[in-house]
Design a protein around this nucleic acid. Structure first.
Lengths: 164, 164
DNA sequence: AGGTTATAGTTTGATATCAAACTAGTTCGC
DNA sequence: GCGAACTAGTTTGATATCAAACTATAACCT
């Protein structure tokens, strides 16, 4: 996971602001791709700080939510849902199992596949993380504004689904 | 699952879609943070493929643009503008210099600082990358729709600037 | 001047991620 | 049945990134 607390990049510290404002961004200024990246990283960073207070990396949140909502899900299905390569999930799941948040058992009829489930501890952690996420979302909502929120979300989904 | 190269995560190949559609995303479905991440990564991935055709990583593009627009910029100012830690830029700049796209010289009056400039080759590469980026932006525009584009961009900028 | 503090860039160590190669188990075709 | 093709998950190798420690300059203050 990323940052833990400190300065992360642009937009921080008086000096940084001064520099950033005197910079010519050229076409980056109006390109979606660049601004999408900047927004995502800022938001991710903010959530990261929050979730760290619960002692979990921000990446664990989607994972735990998806396991919680889809008991017995396989790692491959999980990786597809979370938009990560299945190989990225190996260490994540390993860690969650080691720390007792997730239970993992082989399937009877297909002994290649695992079934993942939350343990009681996992559910508890997920509850805490969900609280963080709700607060985070409230902050985002305040920035986006109620009027545009639905539309904004829809566009994000369309980008994820349709870009190639 | 399907292919070996294109397959990156969710949303790809009929099998992937089938799985993804039977998944319960719970609150992730309507949370900005998650969808922002998915959209950004899909877009980044798409641009990555494009820029690879020019033989450059996607990360090089913002860097070259910023150097081109701000001749003589220092690495620290560059890192602030690009939203990356200055230490991340060390290997990037090193690579660009090694490959003759960027020229780097010490400042006279402050010998800690470098001045970065594009070389002729750097300008040429930037031109190619900019073409890729324009095409990429056209695709994004088609998804977002002209009507919402300005508003969408504005919201992204606000998130990057205001979230904490 | 001389010591303290600040700044530019690099190094180091950690995490996250992808992609391709691999291992083990399953299914298909004949 | 049995080999070929496929699938689930792991391993390996590469890249990108951050943060903190470090090096070398420079500025500041008395």
């Amino acid at each position: 996971m990323r940052g833990s607390k400190g300065t992360r990049g642009a937009r921080r510290g008086r000096n940084g602001e001064a520099i950033a404002e005197s910079i010519n961004f050229g076409p980056l200024e109006r390109w979606i791709g660049f601004n999408l990246r900047m927004a995502q990283e800022a938001a991710f960073q903010a959530f990261s700080r929050r979730s760290q207070e619960v002692g979990e990396g921000p990446g664990r949140f989607a994972t735990l939510t998806l396991i919680g909502r889809n008991p017995g899900i396989s790692q491959t299905a999980l990786s597809l849902a979370a938009g990560r390569d299945k190989s990225s999930l190996t260490p994540v799941v390993e860690d969650l199992v080691r720390r007792g948040l997730v239970a993992r058992k082989r399937m009877r009829d297909d002994r290649r596949t695992y079934r993942l489930n939350l343990t009681a501890a996992g559910r508890k952690t997920l509850t805490q993380l969900t609280r963080c996420a709700r607060q985070h979302e409230r902050n985002l909502d305040a920035i986006i504004g109620r009027r545009d929120r639905t539309r904004f979300l829809q566009i994000l989904k369309r980008i994820a689904a349709e870009i190639e």
